[in-house]
């Protein structure tokens, strides 16, 4: 009995840890889509950059891949954000002036290119075998303290990211951003440099995606190309944000934890099936999450925690410039 309780508790800790990591990425996507209306369909790309940057910087020296440089984990995480931000800046410079569908295509493309690089440049990434021995903070504490301590780290990071993005959104910067999302022509006419604001939001959000990647690498103590598969990162995070409530940071966190719980618990269910069936049932999980997305889009398009007065901020700018039709 006690053993079972302990097992359940450890499961919940693992669930919250990964859910928390997803929450960081979902907060990044909320910055892109929810706040700025930028359709980033290449979350996996920024995730991968962050994960590999931190892994290469923090692992002990290895002949299998570039480095490692044996740096502290916090430095790796910081570097992962910077690396993802730099790439986002380059991508944004090219793509942000285009229509949102184009941005989606371009970001998917960039994510795919990064996967090609990860697989092909073995000297740097150890190819498809991935990078092992990624250090995990507090791993020497032993079960369950090491897991609990890591969860605490994740919670602190989620809270910190939440505070940062909330403050940004409530600052004038956030109001301009929303106004641009609602009506970019009007914002432009009001003298706002729309492209610059979008670029800032794009870089800002991508940094958190990179951070989420780094946290994943440290959590699993391993990163390989499979972890950057578009399904697990890009698609799940999108579903998380839309279900949680696009435009609302608390919605993004809640969505991340709920969707991850659904995803993870259905995995347990399929685990009971015989191996042959389990593989097939696993594909049904994807189907179910897709179905969930369709239902939410059609019936509850504003999500569990809707954005607060979505057009109020925009109205202040657009009313001044848009004439009556």
């Amino acid at each position: 009995m006690e053993q079972m309780m302990f097992g359940i508790m450890m499961y919940l800790v693992a669930l919250l840890t990964i859910g928390g990591i997803y929450a960081v990425i979902a907060l990044g996507l909320n910055m892109h889509w929810g706040v700025s209306g930028l359709f980033n369909a290449g979350i996996a790309g920024f995730f991968a950059i962050g994960a590999y940057t931190s892994a290469i910087l923090t692992t002990p020296t290895s002949i299998k891949h570039l480095g490692g440089f044996d740096l502290p984990v916090w430095l790796g995480m910081l570097a992962s954000m910077i690396a993802a931000g730099i790439v986002a800046y380059a991508v944004g410079r090219i793509c942000l002036r285009l229509r949102s569908d184009y941005l989606a295509i371009a970001t998917i493309g960039i994510a795919e290119i990064f996967r090609l690089v990860l697989k092909n440049e073995s000297w740097m990434t150890n190819g498809t075998r991935g990078i092992a021995n990624v250090p995990k903070p507090f791993e020497d504490l032993g079960t369950p303290w090491s897991q609990l301590a890591f969860l605490a780290v994740v919670i602190v990071i989620v809270a910190a990211v939440y505070v940062v993005v909330e403050r940004a959104l409530n600052a004038p910067w956030g109001r301009v951003m929303r106004a641009i999302r609602e009506n970019d022509d009007a914002a432009e006419a009001a003298g706002k440099d729309v492209v610059r604001f979008r670029l800032e939001a794009f870089v800002f959000g991508a940094m958190f995606m990179g951070l989420g990647g780094a946290m994943t690498a440290h959590s699993f103590k391993f990163i390989g190309p499979e972890a950057t598969e578009p399904l697990l990162t890009t698609f799940l995070v999108w579903v998380m944000l839309i279900i949680g409530g696009s435009g609302n940071n608390r919605g993004a966190i809640l969505g991340a934890i709920i969707v991850w719980a659904i995803w993870s618990m259905t995995q347990i269910l399929t685990g009971f099936l015989p191996p042959d069936l389990a593989v097939r049932a696993a594909t049904l999980r994807v189907f179910l999450v897709g179905l969930l997305l369709q239902v939410v889009l059609q019936r509850f398009s504003r999500g569990l925690i809707p954005e607060k007065s979505p057009t109020a901020a925009a109205a202040t700018i657009s009313q001044k410039v848009t004439p009556a039709p």
């Binding site: 399904l231 698609f235 579903v239 594909t283 994807v286 189907f287 897709g290 997305l293 889009l297």
Partner: peptide, 8 residues
């Protein structure tokens, strides 16, 4: 989402 549903 449909893309993933069809694939799965």
């Amino acid at each position: 989402g449909i893309a993933l549903m069809v694939r799965s």
